[in-house]
Amino acid sequence: MSIGNSPEDDRPSVGRVLQQARIDAGLTVDEVSSTTRVRVPIVHAIEQDDYSRCGGAVYARGHIRTLARVVGIDPTGLIEQFDAEYGGRPEATPAAPLFEAERIRPEPRRPNWTAAMVAAIVAVVGFVGFTLFSDDETSTGNTVAEATQSSPPPKPKPSPTKPTDAKAEPSDSAIAAAPADKVTVKLTADGGNSWISAEDHTGRLIHEGVLKDGDSKTFTDKKQIDLVLGNAGAVNLFVNGKKVDRIGDVGQVQRVSYTKGDPEQG
């Protein structure tokens, strides 16, 4: 990506505008990085119009918005200028549904007792008829009576019920299994890739990188987890065993913190 001024009307580039606004606001790069949690090398690169460290245009737009707000300028014009110079805004990836629709389970079929009784009667009548033709008239009555008493109708077999769907929402026992003395955060990308970073309660960086679509990451700390999501609309969050509402839109940068008492969004 180019470094310097924009070729259109010789206006300042996006990076130069951000740099000058930071200087006018009396802020250092370290102070901007500490406030926005955008790493110092990335801040330096953006101010030189080098967006290769951002991980893609979606993340570059998010960083530009964040830096612009911190130094006190409107990011709208900068985003439009960035899109004009670097290929325009791509179509947003549709966010996946927050919850899978519950499947309708068919009711188990009840035994057909009427059909079973009819079958039993037919069996008894057939047995009686066979006895009448095979024995003489004297023994017929006794045989029929004995056959009627000794041949109870067969028990109908209950229709097999369809097994319930094995896929279900997390149970209370699964939620209770999350350690009560720690904070546990699980991230799953289901609507595209997302750049993420995670810090423990001391501010130590424990993870940074791209969470690819379909992948998951889990972080645990005894007090607090701080997260930065570069594409918040593509990430599902489970905090201490419970799913929380999606915290942003596709392409939006969000920062959240969670403790042992959550899930309440940070």
Results as ranks from 00 to 15, higher is better:
residue 110 R to C: 12
residue 126 G to V: 05
residue 131 T to H: 03
residue 193 N to T: 08
residue 97 P to C: 01
residue 139 S to Q: 11
residue 191 G to F: 09
residue 107 E to F: 03
residue 180 A to D: 12
residue 130 F to H: 13
residue 183 V to I: 08
residue 146 E to I: 04
residue 88 G to V: 02
residue 127 F to L: 15
residue 146 E to D: 10
residue 202 T to R: 09
residue 153 P to Y: 10
residue 80 E to P: 02
residue 153 P to T: 07
residue 197 S to A: 15
residue 144 V to G: 01
residue 189 A to D: 00
residue 129 G to F: 13
residue 198 A to H: 04
residue 78 L to T: 05
residue 171 S to R: 12
residue 193 N to V: 05
residue 148 T to R: 07
residue 145 A to K: 10
residue 119 A to N: 10
residue 193 N to C: 07
residue 107 E to Y: 01
residue 151 S to H: 04
residue 132 L to A: 12
residue 139 S to E: 14
residue 120 A to H: 11
residue 148 T to I: 14
residue 94 P to N: 00
residue 199 E to I: 04
residue 139 S to Y: 07
residue 152 P to N: 08
residue 114 T to N: 07
residue 159 S to K: 15
residue 197 S to L: 03
residue 100 E to S: 01
residue 112 N to G: 06
residue 167 K to S: 10
residue 112 N to F: 04
residue 86 Y to P: 05
residue 135 D to E: 13
residue 158 P to A: 15
residue 116 A to E: 03
residue 139 S to R: 14
residue 97 P to Q: 00
residue 132 L to T: 03
residue 129 G to T: 13
residue 185 V to A: 07
residue 151 S to K: 04
residue 146 E to H: 08
residue 120 A to V: 06
residue 179 P to F: 04
residue 174 A to R: 07
residue 109 R to L: 08
residue 106 P to D: 00
residue 122 V to R: 12
residue 83 D to P: 05
residue 87 G to Q: 02
residue 133 F to W: 04
residue 193 N to Q: 04
residue 84 A to T: 00
residue 123 A to Y: 02
residue 122 V to A: 15
residue 157 K to F: 09
residue 160 P to D: 09
residue 169 E to Q: 10
residue 165 D to M: 04
residue 80 E to A: 13
residue 172 D to E: 11
residue 168 A to H: 15
residue 161 T to A: 15
residue 156 P to R: 13
residue 172 D to R: 12
residue 102 E to Q: 08
residue 154 P to T: 11
residue 94 P to F: 00
residue 186 K to L: 15
residue 125 V to L: 15
residue 204 R to T: 09
residue 190 D to A: 03
residue 80 E to Y: 01
residue 194 S to T: 13
residue 101 A to Y: 00
residue 145 A to V: 10
residue 143 T to I: 06
residue 177 A to R: 13
residue 153 P to E: 08
residue 82 F to A: 03
